[in-house]
């Protein structure tokens, strides 16, 4: 019996039963953009950057199990326009001032915006007021850049066994909170060695005193675009 496969932008992608579209695509060396998906964790499906059109329906490819014979569109001008709009929403929702951000060049949101050639935030900015939390001796939290991927929430809960982070409020007022009555990171059991301290795809969780150790210009996405780096990470690091 031959392995089942589906067509991704016209080319066959084999998959195993239970594999999602995104997972199968990656295994076959094909990149589908994503921000909240991470190989170590169950699909989350919140950022919607991985949206594809499968058998005529728009679905989150990170969460949708692959089906034999499906025709899946991903790298098309129409879908990339949708993705660009989603990025623009993330940019206007928070305060993303790249020139002052230590994560610049290593940031997945920024890298994806480069890759999808987002040149304008397009919408009217919300300019929310989100004070930073610098209380912890080793790590700074700059909530201005949070995209609510919940990777820190999941890493702290599932890998570190700590539950340092959670989300509160809802809608456009949704916010990241830490596990302390004071609301300060210093009053939690968070440590710079936690997995959660190394998983933020954007510039919320920043390690102090190392900000510009790697100079701008020599950073992750300076050398290669995210569609290349993202595929490499899985093969090399895991």
């Amino acid at each position: 019996m031959s392995t089942p496969h589906f067509l991704l932008d016209g080319l066959p992608v084999p998959f195993e039963e239970g594999q999602t579209i995104l997972e199968a695509a990656r295994a076959a060396g094909r990149y589908i953009p994503h921000l909240c998906w991470h190989p170590e964790f169950a699909p989350h499906g919140s950022c919607k950057l991985c949206v594809v059109k499968a058998a005529g329906r728009y679905v989150s490819s990170c969460a949708m199990p692959a089906r034999a014979g499906w025709e899946v569109e991903s790298d098309t001008p129409a879908l990339n326009t949708r993705r660009r709009t989603l990025l623009q929403m993330l940019f206007v929702e928070g305060n993303h001032f790249c020139p002052a951000c230590e994560k610049s060049g290593d940031c997945q949101l920024q890298a994806l915006a480069y890759d999808l050639e987002m040149t304008t935030p397009r919408f009217t900015h919300f300019f929310p007021d989100r004070p930073v939390d610098a209380s912890h001796p080793d790590v700074l939290l700059d909530f201005n850049r949070c995209i609510y991927c919940e990777l820190c929430v999941r890493a702290s809960r599932e890998t570190d066994g700590k539950a340092v982070f959670a989300l509160s409020q809802r809608g456009i007022h949704k916010k990241l909170v830490v596990n302390a009555e004071s609301g300060r990171l210093a009053d939690t059991d968070f440590a710079a060695t936690d997995h959660a301290a190394h998983i933020c795809p954007v510039g919320v969780i920043l390690h102090k005193r190392v900000g510009f150790r790697t100079p701008i210009g020599a950073r992750t996405y300076d050398a290669a675009p995210i569609r290349v780096v993202a595929m490499r990470t899985e093969a090399d690091d895991d």
Binding site: F91, N95, F97, P99, T120, H125, P128, D129
Partner: peptide, 18 residues
């Protein structure tokens, strides 16, 4: 044409917006 960060998204001066 919006040229540069400040024209595109307010940039550094917009950091007073909150």
């Amino acid at each position: 044409v919006a040229l540069g960060a400040c024209a595109v998204n307010g940039g550094l001066p917009a950091q007073r917006n909150h």
